[in-house]
């Protein structure tokens, strides 16, 4: 675990040093300790752009992997991820309505003047609204339905339904709007700073509290719902906590950065394999660490060191992450580890 924290710091430094302008790591440490940097432009790049982006990567990495861990344990299903309750599809729907539905009403969102006025806030707000809407619907369902498997299926259905509405909007949307939406849906860690970053941190922090408080219940859930009940775990309140926590974490991560694939499902499995345990008191910090490290590395790679181009983060997480996980699964027996 200590190694993990050290690695996280290293990756953090590497991440902020790499980009279209390379900043040497010793300089970075000087800068972070308050000394002046060799070039004044570095300071601007570092504090206005790179550090907020790296912090975003850490927060989103934590949010997604911790949501995934909760889902997988609660539903006792290795394929569950932060997206199964349809919350990020809801966020996607919100953004799609904002971008493409807006143009149907005569507001061309993609035109630069409107983008400047609405900017990233518009996307964040519409994404959050979409996520909150689905979260409310899911809560209503959870209130009516006692069976967890049904909840899982209904979540997937919400996801499909939102996806369908997004498709309809895309079909009728104009080319620029469509491109804007597509770029959003590929995910991006950049562009979040100042107040936005503060809000993201606060939501992330609030979303994590119920997880920490319920680590013991999640351990009991390893034996399934009925055993957990017999050990005094209140499944009903655990379910509420899970919906709220993943809703906040995955919902905010998606609203701020777009649907970032892969982290939520794969990182908890990586944590189980690396730490060889089922104990959530270890898995929770481990997933958070691995999730942040993974996103920091992915972001560093997406800068394509030495070039000014940046690839969308989703491309990297899936392109490099998927083979890694396949390799791990082939090497070790996933089903016996879950």
């Amino acid at each position: 675990m200590i190694i993990g924290v050290v690695l996280l710091l290293v990756f953090f430094l590497v991440n902020i040093s790499i980009g279209s302008v390379y900043i040497p790591i010793p300089q970075l440490i000087h800068g972070l300790l308050g000394a002046d940097l060799d070039k004044a432009s570095w300071e601007t790049i570092l504090f206005l752009y790179r550090i907020p982006k790296a912090i975003t990567a850490v927060l989103v990495g934590i949010s997604l992997s911790v949501s995934g861990l909760q889902m997988q344990t609660f539903f006792r299903n290795p394929l569950a991820g932060p997206y199964v309750l349809g919350i990020s599809s809801g966020a996607g729907l919100g953004v799609a309505i904002m971008i493409m539905g807006g143009s149907a009403l005569g507001i061309t969102f993609s035109s630069s003047s409107n983008y400047m006025t609405w900017g990233i806030w518009g996307i964040i707000i519409s994404g959050s609204l979409g996520a909150i809407l689905v979260l409310l619907l899911m809560s209503l369902t959870a209130w009516k339905i006692k069976d967890s498997m049904t909840l899982l299926i209904i979540g997937l259905m919400f996801g499909s339904a939102s996806g369908a509405v997004v498709s309809v909007l895309s079909y009728f949307g104009n080319a620029e709007d469509l491109k804007l939406f597509t770029i959003w849906s590929m995910g991006s860690l950049g562009g979040i700073s100042g107040t936005q970053l503060e809000i993201l941190s606060i939501i992330c922090f609030i979303g994590i509290i119920p997880v920490i408080a319920l680590l013991k219940s999640y351990n009991a859930m390893l034996m399934g719902e009925r055993y957990a009940t017999s050990m005094g775990v209140n499944i009903k309140s655990l379910r509420w906590a899970m919906i709220l926590s993943t809703g906040l974490l995955a919902g905010s991560a998606t609203a701020f950065c777009g649907p970032i694939a892969f982290i939520g499902i794969a990182v908890p499995h990586l944590a189980r394999m690396i730490f060889r345990t089922g104990d959530h008191r270890i898995l929770f910090p481990a997933s958070a660490l691995i999730g942040s490290c993974f996103l920091l590395i992915s972001d560093a790679i997406s800068q394509i060191p030495g070039s000014a181009e940046t690839l969308p983060i989703n491309v990297i997480t899936s392109l490099f992450g998927a083979p890694l996980v396949i390799w791990l699964i082939l090497k070790r027996n996933l089903s016996s580890e879950f």
Partner: peptide, 28 residues
């Protein structure tokens, strides 16, 4: 119970320790 369990990665001692859940503190 008759439910099949899939407690991945838990050792026997850890599984038996889960029985202490009602008695341990908040973090178990």
């Amino acid at each position: 119970l008759t439910d099949r369990i899939s407690p991945g990665n838990l050792s026997v001692a850890q599984l038996v320790s889960l029985g202490r859940t009602p008695f341990t503190n908040w973090i178990g």
